[in-house]
Design a protein around this nucleic acid. Sequence first.
RNA 1: GUGGGUGUAGCUCAGCUGGCAGAGCAUCGGGUUGUGGUCCCGAGGGUCGGGGGUUCGAACCCCCUCACUCACCCCA
Length: 433
Amino acid sequence: MSVKHQAPRGTRDLLPDETPLWRWAEAAARGVLERYGYGEIRTPMFEDYELFARTAGESSDVVQKEMYRFTDLGERQLALRPEFTAGVMRAWLESGLGGRARVHRLWSAGPVFRYGRPAKGRYRQFSQLNCELVGSAAPGADVEMITLFVDLYEAWGFRDLIVLVNSVGQPASRRAYGERLREVFAPHREALSADSQQRLETNPMRILDTKDEKDLALLATLRANNALPTLLDSIDEADRAHWDAVLAGLEAAGVRYEVDHGLVRGLDYYTRTAFEVHDRSLASQSALGGGGRYDGLIEMLGGAPTPGVGFAIGMDRTLLVLQQRGIQAASGDVVCLVAMEGTRAAATALARELRREFTVECDVEARGFSAQMKTAGKSGARFLVILGEDEWARGEVALKDSRTGTQQTLARIGLADALRALTQETWKQGEAL
RNA sequence: GUGGGUGUAGCUCAGCUGGCAGAGCAUCGGGUUGUGGUCCCGAGGGUCGGGGGUUCGAACCCCCUCACUCACCCCA
């Protein structure tokens, strides 16, 4: 098996046995989004490099080492989108949406690109479902976002979901908190892992979600002595009030959440509320989705100060979990036509007619009767319509239900009616369950 | 990006110390040109991920490379 080309590293093909689950999940999501009153916005898959570099933060990992950056033939500096929000906000500004109404509810879906070492659940091209609520600074907006976030997962069958929430405050308070952490850890520098000593310089908040045993032990000791401040202790009064209101709103909405003091988002533009959902079954790539508030972003892009909240859901990982749980998209009944030597021509016409209403398979290779029957059996077709020469001459066909094994002979004229009645019958039975 | 592991038929995998590439499942055909998914018989299918090296001889040993995977990093 040595083919000349393979899919580029970190990309993959979704084959026909997988796409039904994707379509089902996408359809379920669209239903929820519609009922929440969100409108779809489609933006380019690439934008000016600077747009992403500035909004995500020059020092962020995404910008430092994960961007698909390129120069086009016109010498433009561009990048494949590593996330949706920056592009959506650019479109919002450029189209003047902000002037038409104060609040906008937007969603997008499609591929995003990040250059990183691939692993199960981490791809260089992956798919996100993205939502934004632009124009409201109210805690209720955060609550609606998180509620929508959870309801999407519930529409996909998740029941045991817990949202991790935190407040990352303002950039200034975040910096101040970082300094406080440096002071706290400085005396224990030698006790930290090499990674964390590095983080002490670059991003001390990352020490809080270390996986190193030594680090964890130190953190536990510090906590026990009340020597470890939390980010929540460092945020200002307004942020604190916002945070309390968000939690109260989540309680009221009946959303299960857990406060995670170590939760920090990877992009610099986040303010106040941050949230994520994880699934343990995905090993090291456990984040299924996350989001937060980005009150400074639009101003950063040259717009009037405008608040916003949003989230992104990683579809690949989410569907990976669904597949692991054995969830399959329901498929409809299939009708398979089986023709004889003298009825092949008639079968093509009948197939065409039935396909106005039913899913119909029909042999195109003029294969023998027995071969067609074998194929029909393996295909899982619910109904077999056998066009025997004698019956056909009398204007009749045989209809076999492979679920029960029963077979009846009926007038060709009444075939569609009979199929309709049988499929509706099973549909009703399904409803009863 | 760092460190490990794995690549043999469409799939899951055997293949001993270097000596003619195998099995099961799947596919196709036949047994059965008017009743399948059971059974029986048969067939096709491989540059052993790719390139180089060592050797009389390499799936096996060495180097490089590509891909996947696990743990980190980071996140979706």
